[in-house]
Design a binder for these strands. Structure first.
Lengths: 183, 183
DNA sequence: CTCTCCATGTAAGTGGTTACATGATTTC
DNA sequence: GAAATCATGTAACCACTTACATGGAGAG
């Protein structure tokens, strides 16, 4: 049950409408908890009904009309409680690793290309994160507590991408190693 | 749609019953594509109906009776086709990173303990993988193609766990860094 | 003859994805 | 006033999870 808490966090950082939330998910929170506008609207409805958030009074409440939400005290409490909750990490699920294992059994002529494609994707993601880092966390502002935590989270994303880039590079090198595979 | 292909791979490695599959998922394939027996039985039914696998003739076909499955040629083809399929990596979803981001907004007194708990869990997983590595991939058998690929997959799991261990260690150190937080 | 374990399932619920619907606002 | 875009939704589906059901075989 993480999506509602992701939304509460985003709304506490800044009250927003559904579409604004969607965009912010696309380029910030979504980097470690992605979502679509459909899911977000549905969840906003639930959160409002639960009394965790409320829609700011709008001049013309109607369909297709922008609706801004803000977090209520109950919502903040709910989020604070969730933060201190223990939850085991979800076991890894990687279709790429599974494909490699399958290739060990039935052979895989296209696997190499797929590894290269993933390598490129992870390289790009890594570059994007690094841009964000130099933009949002320049060396001077390392003191403030909220920024320290947000920076740690970003470093997590960066290090993860770096891990994939390194592993894929290594894997490709070993694929045409000693025995040399595909003709 | 990876589970059916995970099952096909496992069955090609060795024909098995549903429960045997479940156990093998628990200590091998499940390391990168976990599943439960309920899901596996359901999927076995679908795969059989699709003509990808068949139940080996049993002496007494009845409920509660062991049923062994093997992969049919159509199943092998299906799997070979899937291996050469392109599929983008799923975006990361980490409740722990989300919790850190939330803690930057509402504060988190219990977060430190949770980081330590995760660190311990990842340490244990890493140790388990390493045992498997020395047991299943001793230095001498590095030539054969199927083993090379399977070893690469295992290295992926190992490196990923090592990433988490390192990142969590780093994060904990920075949490009581210059500013020093929780008493 | 009961208890436990092996083995195969059924059913309900949840979270996420994909496809589609519809009203409002701006642009040409 | 037609087209594009902003904005909010509905509906159907799918994979996965959790809880429960049932039957057979061996141990005491």
């Amino acid at each position: 049950m993480s999506l509602p808490h992701a939304i509460l966090t985003a709304l506490l950082e800044k009250p927003s409408s559904g579409l604004e939330l969607t965009r912010r998910f696309d380029r910030s929170i979504g980097y470690f908890w992605s979502s679509t506008h459909q899911q977000i609207y549905r969840e906003l409805g639930k959160l409002e009904q639960a009394g965790y958030i409320r829609a700011l009074p709008a001049p013309v409440p109607a369909r297709g009309q922008k609706k801004e939400y803000e977090v209520l005290p109950a919502g903040r409490e709910e989020l604070a409680g969730w933060v201190d909750t223990a939850e085991d990490p979800k076991p890894l699920r990687s279709a790429l690793l599974l494909r490699m294992r399958a290739a060990a059994v039935v052979g895989g002529r296209g696997l190499r290309a797929e590894l290269e494609r993933h390598l490129e994707l992870h390289r790009r993601q890594l570059a994007e994160y690094r841009e964000i880092e130099v933009r949002d966390f320049p060396p001077e502002r390392r003191a403030a507590e909220p920024d320290r935590l947000r920076h740690l989270v970003l470093r997590g994303g960066i290090d993860l991408e770096r891990f994939w880039v390194e592993w894929l590079t290594q894997a490709l090198r070993e694929l045409d190693g000693p025995g040399t595979a595909t003709p």
